[in-house]
């Protein structure tokens, strides 16, 4: 009753597809499970803030700030939580580190795209709503596609980095994990610099080449970090 090579190859390929899909679905589903509430709460909070500002004499509102601009930080937190929950279960169920890596890469890309799309939609909708309320919109106008592109890059980089940080602490513990954290934060810092819509907003606007190359390097670096952290992950024993 020995398995033939052909049957085995087929079974392994099928298994890896299933395992990768399971992780991808978990990453996307887990993020949206809470993410939907993130957007609801953020929008409600933004409405409350705008209402208060309007009642107090009216100030300018930048549509890129608020819920639209902070989605990546929410994704970052979720990306730290999810790997710790699924990794032991996935490996116990017959998955591998490779399927974990692929699943989180695909899942990260998917939620990055989705959250960037929703953020962009908010940016498009917000000036319209503010116009109805006679609230002036401040900030330089920018092409929506450029905004979408930079949000996609930022969101995905933050997800990959969050995943890598989670596994880094799992693998290396507190002290080394914190040291590695500084390295792992370089890709999002680069993406922020390249897009200048995040933490380093005071900097001059980079050229399009800097934006494209910076985002590409940040994406590649964060994906590599994720792969590196997962590829040799050792599951801790529960008992001696």
């Amino acid at each position: 009753m020995t398995t033939t090579l052909e049957a085995r190859r087929e079974a392994v390929a099928d298994h890896e597809r299933r395992a990768t899909r399971a992780v991808t679905q978990y990453a996307v589903g887990g993020t949206w499970y809470i993410g939907i509430w993130y957007f609801v709460v953020s929008v409600v909070a933004a409405v409350v803030v705008i209402t208060i500002e309007v009642r107090n004499g009216g100030v300018g509102i930048n549509p890129a700030a608020g819920p639209a601009g902070s989605a990546r930080f929410f994704l970052f937190v979720m990306a730290i939580l999810l790997p710790l929950m699924i990794t032991p279960v996935h490996l116990a169920a017959g998955g591998t580190r490779r399927t974990l890596t692929r699943g989180f890469l695909r899942g990260g890309a998917a939620v990055g795209l989705m959250f960037a799309a929703v953020s962009t939609l908010l940016v498009v909708v917000q000036p319209v709503v503010l116009g109805w309320l006679d609230v002036p919109v401040v900030g330089d106008p920018f092409p929506i596609l450029t905004y979408l592109g930079t949000q996609v890059a930022l969101c995905i980089v933050y997800v990959f980095t969050g995943n890598a940080i989670a596994i880094s602490y799992y693998r290396f513990g507190g002290w080394v994990g914190t040291a590695v954290l500084l390295l792992l934060l370089l890709p999002p810092a680069l993406a922020e610099y390249a897009t200048t819509v995040g933490l380093v907003t005071g900097l001059p606007l980079p050229s399009p080449a800097v934006v494209v190359v910076g985002c590409a390097v940040a994406l590649a670096a964060s994906a590599t970090a994720l792969w590196f952290m997962f590829r040799d992950l050792q599951v801790r024993p529960r008992v001696g």
Binding site: V12, H15, A92, A93, G94, R98, R238
Partner: peptide
């Protein structure tokens, strides 16, 4: 890290891994 082995070996720990 061998998918053939992983899919055919089941370790159940007291913690359940669920």
């Amino acid at each position: 890290e061998n998918p053939w082995a992983s899919m055919n070996v089941q370790l159940v720990r007291e913690s359940g891994d669920v």
